[in-house]
Design a binder for these strands. Structure first.
Lengths: 190, 190
DNA sequence: CGAAGTTTAGGGCAACCATCCTATTTACTG
DNA sequence: CAGTAAATAGGATGGTTGCCCTAAACTTCG
């Protein structure tokens, strides 16, 4: 297989990723993606034989993007405290998108759960990667058995903030909640 | 208009409500609802001319159900503290459904937001009714200007708990978080 | 160059969906 | 009981979707 096909494959994944986020998975058609990439449906089908296949590719990409980001933070920031703060800052850094489309992880998991989709478990990997990473960070900060539970709590808080920010289209709320969440974090790890 | 039609109309709304919750709005067809009610599509169309129309009816029903519930609590429980605890208990009381289908309010708002649906604002009413009611309760408990912000925080926490419970299909997590949320509430209003 | 493999385009198909339409049955009223 | 209105059934329609198929164009390499 030539590398030209591989490059196009990547472009398709990027376009699909964005559309799935903005419009949802079911609400995005092959034609929508093909149009965005600027190719024909036939060509699209050459690269991805089913819709599940491209969803799978999008999820895989997202998971490894997350893993890479967390890895990066591990190298850049020696203090787990700092790393977790960067996790929370994801909310602030993406507030415009969150306001318009919610959390890309949470909204996808929610949609797939509703259709009992076969790839629901794969989508959950986006969450478990974050959960496990947060657990490690919290343990490094001296938390014991409760680290995992606290990590889950952090996930839930983030999801809640994204949901309400999206529903009310209110970035101010997001900012308030981020501040509150950071205060709470400081109290947990002194 | 006879009252027979009105009764069927109600049955349609109930069936649609449930299906929208379990499968999502877009993922539910006229035929699905008609089949559940046990009527033909033609009859269905006699009662609701468009899909938006039935969504509208479902939202209206949900909103007034919520209002009625809150009203009831107002009469039954003299202490706002108690009332808010009942709000939190909604999570526990519906944990099985939340595990399988998420929060009926949050997941609908999220879906409609993704499609830029005309009724998104109407769906938000389910949230604003709760927010405003929580604000009143918190003010009665002595909170001032921060009452509204705290109410929003409560909404977000609930949404987050529902999202993660649904994604991980983990009722234990829901129970842990409810406990935590009640502890937090106690700290806010002493 | 020329053959074999890779990539692209786009027409076609069966299924599904929201909606429309018409015909029939049922309920109500004078 | 007759006639009008309400209610029900289900076929028809036009649009969209995921997916299939075939032919053409392009790449690669002996």
């Amino acid at each position: 297989m030539g590398h030209k096909g591989e490059a196009l494959r990547q472009r398709i994944i990027v376009a699909a990723d964005l559309l799935f986020y903005q419009r949802g998975y079911e609400n995005t058609s092959f034609s929508d993606i093909a149009k965005d990439v600027g190719i024909s449906r036939g060509n699209f089908y050459y690269h991805f034989k089913t819709k599940d296949e491209i969803l799978n590719a999008v999820i895989d990409t997202r998971v490894s993007d997350i893993e890479q980001m967390l890895n990066e933070w591990g190298k850049q920031y020696p203090d787990p405290r700092q790393r977790i703060q960067h996790y929370i800052d994801i909310l602030t850094n993406n507030q415009e998108n969150i306001k318009s489309h919610g959390c890309p992880i949470g909204s996808l998991c929610s949609e797939l759960a509703k259709q009992n989709h076969a790839l629901q478990q794969d989508a959950n990997k986006m969450l478990t990667v974050l959960r496990d990473w947060l657990t490690v960070q919290l343990k490094e900060l001296g938390l014991g058995k409760e680290a995992r539970q606290t990590a889950m709590h952090l996930l839930a808080r983030s999801q809640g903030i994204a949901s309400i920010t999206n529903a009310f289209e209110d970035k101010t709320f997001l900012q308030q909640e981020v501040k509150r969440l950071k205060q709470w974090l400081d109290e947990q790890i002194q």
